[in-house]
């Protein structure tokens, strides 16, 4: 177990001083910062009427911002940057001559990226709370200090957003392994984002099969897309988990069997 933790920790050492580390902080802080700026400049529009809670509107615009392509692109960029550390350092050839199984190297990398992805939400929550409370201090009329956000909704949305993005996560992990560069996965993500907007504008029910739409569908369910539930998950979240399973398996086989340094 100690060896496993020690080996896993090497992935976090590699992120030190790299842009991937800053992407985590910036990614978690950007949306709360942006929403803070929007509310600051138009704060009078957000003054609650009787019985209203400003946190509700604050939550809504924050999550819509997070879900509309932002989280997908953040994941894509994280994937590219973290895997590019090895590609750029020509480090695979060294790692493959160590007495460490390829399956272990795969596991360390995959787990690290999952932890980093989960950390996006872990950091987003405090940043978001701080920005909301700061607004409450700067504009007491918003009553954000005397009211509270819906913490359950916050945690629940974080969890479902995480699940809804796992499909894109696995697809881009595989792409970063397969193509060993940043251009193709990022280019693919941009095209996929454009396709999502087109499908969304066309109110296409096929969005339920399209992994780049899942985060948005989780935060903002649409009438024209199936909203069936299976247990605690919406149908598109189940599809996200299926994409995750299929592409994780594909990247595992690709890495262990065919990947050349």
């Amino acid at each position: 177990m100690n060896h496993f933790i020690g080996s896993l920790s090497t992935e976090f050492i590699k992120i030190r001083n790299s842009f991937a580390f800053w992407l985590l902080l910036l990614g978690a802080g950007f949306m709360p910062g942006l929403v803070f700026f929007v509310v600051m400049t138009k704060w009078k529009n957000f003054i609650p009427k009787t019985g209203e809670n400003t946190w509700t509107a604050y939550t809504e615009i924050s999550w819509k911002g997070m879900a509309f392509l932002y989280t997908n692109f953040w994941v894509v960029l994280l994937m590219c940057l973290v895997l590019n550390i090895e590609h750029k350092s020509i480090a695979w050839k060294h790692l493959f001559t160590l007495p460490v199984k390829r399956s272990s190297l795969y596991l360390y990398k995959y787990l690290t990226l999952l932890i980093l992805f989960a950390s996006l939400y872990g950091l987003f929550i405090p940043f978001w709370l701080v920005s909301g409370n700061l607004l409450g201090i700067l504009h007491p009329e918003l009553k954000m200090l005397s009211t509270k956000p819906d913490y359950l909704y916050l945690l629940n949305t974080c969890f479902h957003s995480f699940v809804a993005t796992l499909g894109v996560f696995a697809i881009h992990f595989w792409m970063s392994i397969r193509f060993k560069n940043m251009i193709i996965p990022i280019g693919f993500a941009i095209v996929s984002g454009i396709v999502f907007v087109a499908l969304f504008q066309g109110r296409a029910p096929e969005l339920v099969y399209y992994p780049y739409s899942y985060n948005y569908l989780t935060v903002n369910p649409q009438q024209f897309v199936s909203n069936n539930q299976i247990g605690v998950f919406a149908i598109h979240e189940i599809f996200s988990l299926l994409y995750f399973a299929v592409f994780s398996l594909l990247s595992y086989v690709d890495f262990v069997k065919w990947f050349k340094e």
Binding site: H3, G6, S7, S9, T10, I13, K14, R16, N17, S18, I85, S89, I90, A91, W92, K93, H94, L95, L98, P99, V100
Partner: peptide
């Protein structure tokens, strides 16, 4: 040599030291 240029020399060694236990 396969080196992580953004890390220190010591960190480069620690990566291999921990992986090799």
């Amino acid at each position: 040599p396969s080196l992580y240029e953004h890390l220190s020399g010591r960190d480069n060694l620690i990566v291999t030291q921990r992986l090799r236990n």
